[in-house]
Design a protein around this nucleic acid. Sequence first.
DNA 1: CGTGGCGTTGACCGGGATCAAGTAGAGTGG
DNA 2: CCACTCTACTTGATCCCGGTCAACGCCACG
Lengths: 230, 230
Amino acid sequence: MKKVTIVDNGDGCFLCKNCLKEWIPAILAHKKNYKVKKGEVIFREGDPVKGVFFVNNGVVKVHKRWGADKELILRFANEGTIFGHRALGGDGIYSISATAVQAGIISYVDIDFFEATLKVNADFAYKLLLFMASELRISERKMRNLAHMPVKGRVADALITLKNQFGETPAGFINIELSRQDLASFSGATYETVFRVINELIHEGLLVLSGKSISIANYNKLLKLTEDIA
Amino acid sequence: MKKVTIVDNGDGCFLCKNCLKEWIPAILAHKKNYKVKKGEVIFREGDPVKGVFFVNNGVVKVHKRWGADKELILRFANEGTIFGHRALGGDGIYSISATAVQAGIISYVDIDFFEATLKVNADFAYKLLLFMASELRISERKMRNLAHMPVKGRVADALITLKNQFGETPAGFINIELSRQDLASFSGATYETVFRVINELIHEGLLVLSGKSISIANYNKLLKLTEDIA
DNA sequence: CGTGGCGTTGACCGGGATCAAGTAGAGTGG
DNA sequence: CCACTCTACTTGATCCCGGTCAACGCCACG
């Protein structure tokens, strides 16, 4: 995290939009806010762990590298979502990277304070626990998909996930601006393949494009591609 | 879980061999022990969630199906390890299956009691939290590997993982009896491919076989296959 | 003795990665 | 306003890893 601008616009909801309002006061006193630009790296695999982050505003991708020029995007964190918490109890080194894909404001809480809060506050720990259990279920599904589901299904799954997480614009387009490269990394496939697959999906009438924006034209058929009855 | 034998041999360590001894008394009072046979299904994807399990003894595979005849083994739980905890906060349906791969004794704690314990006991919740953070890191690494690492590397990684988790016999063989099919499912590849890859590794002098038992003959070279410098 | 499960091996082939090359837009400087 | 560069998008050609299918050997077991 280099040359970030410190801002202090106070509020915003953490961890999960609705469930943790009661703990914000404790955390508020100990957090710092940073403004991040699009594409800005927040932390990188191999960096020493300093704290835990929350997205106040904007979108952050959590990703993991392979070799020099391959990555897998594990998830996107948007407004109200924690990230960097996987570092808890680890070896003090981030095992993943976090990069802003849309400009925004992120909050930072140092790891010691965060751990202390968790140890003292069973309800808070419990909520985080549930969140992590849910992340684990998502991870396991994604692992299974990467192992067995063809690319077409994975792209469909990625689009559905994005729609669910970010919603749609009034015009019906998935409400996130994502480079094709990022969509590919999120699907676990190459740029070119994802491109071709999206074209297929358009020709089959499941998707509609407008510039870079993607709209799901036939949700049910798209969903069917993610099922395992092949 | 059908026609299991209830036994009561009392002790054994949970969650993590060394860290949770102090909480055992509370859980002991509310757990039941079951004897499981090799190959016995403990619960299945789609089953309603009733509780959380611990392995007292034996080995359990946690796996997820794809279609009729494909699966991915997510992890193995051995002595002292919790499983089924991902169901916490979910929709009340197991998203994965658990099957004994070696006969043993498992403990069962019903979900309500387990949740109540977590909510009341911050330290306990914290320990479980750390465990889940570690599982998340492992999952993410595995996802990345499934997306980008060739099968040979994944098999190498699987063997190293097994060695670390189960140790070696005095003769230097990985101390778990695993069908080739399970090894394949754990590596995220097919039976035949894994077979060929293991042959390669033997010819290259990295592995030695004795019946079904596998011994790692050159750990460093094996490890090198799991690195991303390709 | 059959029979069924697992191990073993070869032949085939297709999905998707890789490579290469062309196009279009967005900023930049003259 | 135009040339120039750079990055992202688009598309075709090729290749190969690894999945699929099929066949056979082997041993355990009813």
